[in-house]
Computed example of a mutant assay.
Amino acid sequence: MRFKKPKISDVIFLVLVATLIIPQTRKPIQVFVNRGLSLISPSKVSDEKQENITSYTWKLKDVHGDVFSFEDAKGQVVLVNFWATWCPPCIAEMPSLQKLYNDYHDKVKFVFVSDEWFKDITPFLEKNKYTFKVYRSVSNYNNIFNVTGIPRTFLIDKTGKIVIDKTGAANWNSESVRNTLDELIKQ
């Protein structure tokens, strides 16, 4: 029996499939692809479709065990980001969120939320030199946010209206997001 010499395209295809099957190479490739997708800025929800947060009854806990009540964010501009360390789109958008946090953390309340344990979160933050605080939910947030996938980010104005509601990776350090934040801070 004679075998046909493989084409270069067949070899490339097999190498690509193999790299996507191996966990150590799959995640970096997915992050790389999502970084490209996250170059797009999130858009504002049209005024007539903006929903109001009706409840602020939500408790969160930080790595030190300190409890944060979402009620304390009432009346402020708030960015809430649901994410995980294992999530390639989350990882892809984190650098833009860190840059935004660097410039706005004293004017905007940033609430980064993960369901993971801090033993997994802390090394990820340290490795990537992220300085924002991360919380784990202590109480149910489904009465406030309907999160069915991550990353999911909400930008909320001082009156409790959801101005941006974005599922998937995005460029949070864009000029349009910064203009929106500046506008919301002035109100």
Rank of each mutant, 00 (worst) to 15 (best):
S174Y: 01
V163Q: 03
E175A: 12
K158E: 12
E183R: 15
R178M: 13
N173R: 12
R178K: 10
A170T: 09
N179K: 14
N171M: 14
E175H: 09
T148R: 15
I144T: 12
N179H: 13
G168D: 02
S176E: 15
K166S: 05
L181E: 04
V147E: 00
L155M: 05
L181V: 03
I164Y: 02
D157W: 02
I164W: 04
T148A: 14
F145I: 10
T180F: 06
V163N: 05
K186S: 09
N179C: 10
A170V: 08
S176H: 10
V147G: 15
R178F: 11
F145H: 11
T153P: 09
I144A: 07
D165V: 00
I162M: 13
N146R: 07
R152H: 13
G149V: 01
K161H: 11
S176M: 13
I144E: 03
G168T: 04
T153V: 05
E183C: 10
I164M: 02
P151Y: 07
A169F: 05
T180D: 07
T153I: 02
T167A: 08
K186C: 00
K186F: 04
T167R: 10
N143W: 10
G168W: 12
L184N: 04
T153W: 09
V163W: 14
N173K: 12
E175V: 05
G149R: 06
D157H: 08
P151N: 02
Q187D: 14
S176N: 11
R152C: 00
S174F: 05
I144S: 09
I164V: 13
L155R: 13
S174C: 09
A169K: 13
F154A: 03
D165E: 02
I164D: 04
I156R: 11
T180S: 02
G168F: 05
I156S: 09
E183G: 06
A170Q: 14
N179F: 05
V163L: 01
R152S: 07
A169G: 15
E175P: 15
T180P: 03
N143R: 08
T148C: 04
R152M: 03
A170G: 14
D157V: 10
T148P: 15
R152V: 01
R178E: 08
V147K: 14
G160N: 09
T153F: 10
T167P: 04
K158I: 12
A169M: 11
L181Q: 05
L155P: 06
G160K: 00
N171P: 14
I150P: 04
K161T: 03
L155V: 13
L181R: 11
T180L: 00
K166I: 00
N179L: 01
F145G: 10
D182I: 03
K161D: 07
S176I: 01
S174R: 13
A169N: 06
L181G: 01
L181M: 07
K161Y: 12
R152Y: 00
E175Y: 08
N146Y: 13
F154V: 01
E183Y: 15
I144C: 11
N143F: 08
N143I: 12
I156E: 13
N142R: 15
R178C: 12
N173E: 06
F154N: 04
D182K: 08
T167Q: 06
P151I: 05
T167K: 09
K186H: 05
S174I: 00
K166R: 05
N171D: 10
N142I: 13
I185S: 07
N179E: 10
A170H: 11
E183F: 08
S176G: 08
S176Y: 11
G160M: 15
V177H: 02
